[in-house]
């Protein structure tokens, strides 16, 4: 079954100012969905709400037809992996252990090493496997945090600005990887970016969040 996320009349705001007016949206697996928006437009809040990390909203978010409010933390973590803009700079945890932490309880122990090696390989982070998180550059850590989300082995992946600290080539590579994962493995991948060009080039479906409105960017508007 293809994973599905649906927003139903979703509204949220901050200090009485609506960041999003009631909006409907349906996303399903096999697609890379891109979201553009300026700083402070509410992109990160939208991601946190869809990920079930924020409950201060009206309307509803449905995960495979079930309201997110009625799902448990475990259930959500089995379906949705999240990449935020936070970069935890830990001294005592290396990349391999981080991936293990994400895959723990979702991949059986015999296949753990193989699974982690695969996730390291596809995100081009295998050479950092034994480095500690505190010793990685911003860009490296961002790639690693994305790889960690993959290691969580979910059908839905929400990535808030996953390419913000990456150089031009790495940006292209990571976004191409997201597209490939969505197409080949029927994952639903929803990412945000300031970079309109990047969203244009790779996303199958594109949205813009501005002035409290979530609008689909039509093909002809892209030119």
């Amino acid at each position: 079954m293809k994973p599905e996320l649906q927003l139903r009349q979703l509204t949220f705001g901050y200090n009485g100012i609506a960041l999003l007016e009631p909006s409907d949206l349906l996303m399903s697996g096999g697609q890379l969905v891109g979201l553009c928006g300026l700083n402070g437009s509410g992109k990160s809040s939208l991601f946190r709400i869809i990920a079930g990390l924020e409950t201060n909203y009206t309307g509803d978010v449905l995960l495979n037809g079930q309201s997110l409010r009625n799902t448990s933390i475990i259930e959500r973590s089995q379906n949705i992996a999240v990449v935020t803009t936070e970069r935890p700079r830990l001294e005592g945890i290396d990349v391999w252990t981080l991936f293990e932490m994400a895959a723990h309880g979702r991949v059986n122990p015999e296949q753990m090493a193989q699974h982690i090696e695969h996730c390291l390989h596809v995100t081009d982070t295998a050479h950092m496997a034994h480095r500690r998180l505190a010793h990685l550059s911003d860009g490296e850590l961002q790639k690693v945090m994305f790889g960690r989300a993959l290691a969580q082995n979910t059908s839905i992946l929400l990535a808030d600005e996953p390419t913000a600290f990456l150089d031009y080539r790495a940006k292209q590579e990571l976004t191409a990887l997201m597209r490939k994962l969505a197409h080949d493995q029927n994952k639903l991948i929803f990412f945000s970016s300031h970079d309109l060009e990047l969203v244009k080039e790779f996303a199958d479906i594109r949205y813009a969040l501005a002035n409290g409105k979530l609008n689909r960017i039509a093909e002809d508007q892209l030119i």
């Binding site: 946190r48 990920a51 079930g52 990390l53 933390i73 475990i74 959500r76 973590s77 089995q78 949705i80 992996a81 999240v82 935020t84 936070e86 935890p88 830990l90 005592g92 945890i93 252990t97 981080l98 932490m101 994400a102 723990h104 309880g105 969580q152």
Partner: peptide
Amino acid sequence: AMPMNHFLLGDTYARSMGTD
């Protein structure tokens, strides 16, 4: 042990990885 490891990453990541 694992939830405590998750906890090191901060509340947001810990929750998204299944730790209450």
